[in-house]
Amino acid sequence: MQPPPASAQAIVCHELTKQFGDFRAVDKITLSVAQGEIFGFLGANGAGKTTAMRMLCGLSYPSAGQATVAGFDVYRQQEKIKQNIGYMSQKFSLYENLTILENIEFFGGIYGLSNQQLRAKSEELITTLGLHKEAKKLVGSLPLGWKQKLAFSVAIIHEPKIVFLDEPTGGVDPVTRRQFWDLIYAAADRGITNFVTTHYMDEAEYCNRVSIMVDGRVEALDSPANLKLQYHADSMDEVFYQLARGAQRGE
């Protein structure tokens, strides 16, 4: 894959670092993600993926290094960043005691969608997810797979430039995971940049490019095909093993 021109970069970060006391959670990571790309952000548990992602989302101040997201600086322009991104956290974070429709209305509403847009979006989302019967049910009563698909759809309800997904398919069955990735592809087709962390190496194969983090550092960054060549491996699984074997941090 050709590196896209600089103007089309959705995320650029240079030696981004996060220090907690004497623990360096994220150690000088440098990477860039093109607009519309599906970027896999891999790493073992505790490698620092979530911390890095939280800095990029404007939820946490970096300790050192530079980064821009959607062209905005992570130190000074977090609120601008927040207008341009969607975020789906590791922990399910829609309101369980609101219905599907109410959640859609709320999150759409706080991103400034008009009533008309809200109505259209709700209809579209419920149709895509096949949730007509459940639209007025409390979100808490849905099975996990549906919750995750709904959370993703709500995270991109305002058509952001970039969506950050933190282990979106954890604990989800293979069929639903497949459907989830269909949603990601659909979003990428509309030009939304997807920044995904995952533990499933089959999912890594779906990404345009992946980075593999070990102990807070980015150890490898390329397309899955190139990485397999470089590490003489048949699958991303093997690539990951080779890199993560040397990890010092456990769970």
């Binding site: 609120e79 399910f92 999150f107």
Partner: peptide
């Protein structure tokens, strides 16, 4: 505790 505040914090709500 539930984690929903994260979803608020990542939005442009003032």
């Amino acid at each position: 505790e539930i984690g929903t505040i994260e979803q608020i914090n990542v939005s442009p709500i003032r």
